[in-house]
Amino acid sequence: MLHYLMKRLAFGVLTIWFIATATFVGMHAVPGDPLMSDKAVSPEIRKHLEQRYGLDKPIMQQYQIYIMNMLKGDFGISFTQQNRRVNDIIAEHFPVSALLGVLAIGYATLGGIMLGAITSLYRNRWPDYLLIVFVVLGISIPSFVFASIGQLMILKVNAWLGFQLLPVAGWGSISHMIVPSLILGLGILAYLTRLMRSSMLEVIHADYIRTARAKGLSSQRIFYRHQLRNAVLPVITVLGPAIAAITTGGFVVELIFAIPGLGRYFVQAVQQLDYTVIMGTTVFYGAFLVLMVTLADLLYGLIDPRIRIQKVA
């Protein structure tokens, strides 16, 4: 197990290095340069700025400095916001995205497992069909449609009630979080419901279920102790990538609901060509993704002994 853990960690670190390098290469392939702005800068100021951002050095040396700084956990200073460190920007905006993502993932996971189990119980009866329709719609309708319709609905409900039940946009209180996190988790909820449903239907034909039934266990006990527990396993494997996808994929919801998350900030940085912020955010998210996938894998190994044995062997 320790050997496996070490291997995973080493691979994770290598992956992060790859992401950092790809980001560096990508950003240096951008036409023009970061100091090119609409304001004309005198050569002296330009030289000074180049010095400050280390742009006067040869590219390999820049890469070396970049990687060394990255190892120290320093992402540099923003190009467009004077004297603001990228670390501070991430520290300020990431928790917002993370909170939104955790809320969305939380309800989507619980809901997905529950709905998936229910649909498998009522297979080919109306609750099953109803949920299948919901799942198909949830997968097929883009999140920006849900988000804009959601916002319109809040507006209409507020107008109809005559007072503000929920805020239309913004961030700060729990009431700000409800609708955006519901919308953000909708796609994952639909996806997990489908996954859980097929997993439940697969498990029901397993030998241990037949054995349990032959032993004369009550159908409730079989459902909760044997079927549900085993069916949940595949759901856990997709949870790691799902967490990463939801925290990075929150752009639309953050843009529409004016939430000061890192996703919205990233889009803004791209529009303003804020090089250090783009690089820092990408590497940070990449590392986060790697961490989540690794954690989910390890968790999976802990929960399912069969996997652990297989991997060690």
Binding site: L14, V270, L289
Partner: peptide, 21 residues
Amino acid sequence: ADFVIALPFLLFMILFKVSFG
């Protein structure tokens, strides 16, 4: 291939767009 899979998809889609200019 594992390395490329680990790249955050949407972020790199946007990054590519910027790189292409």
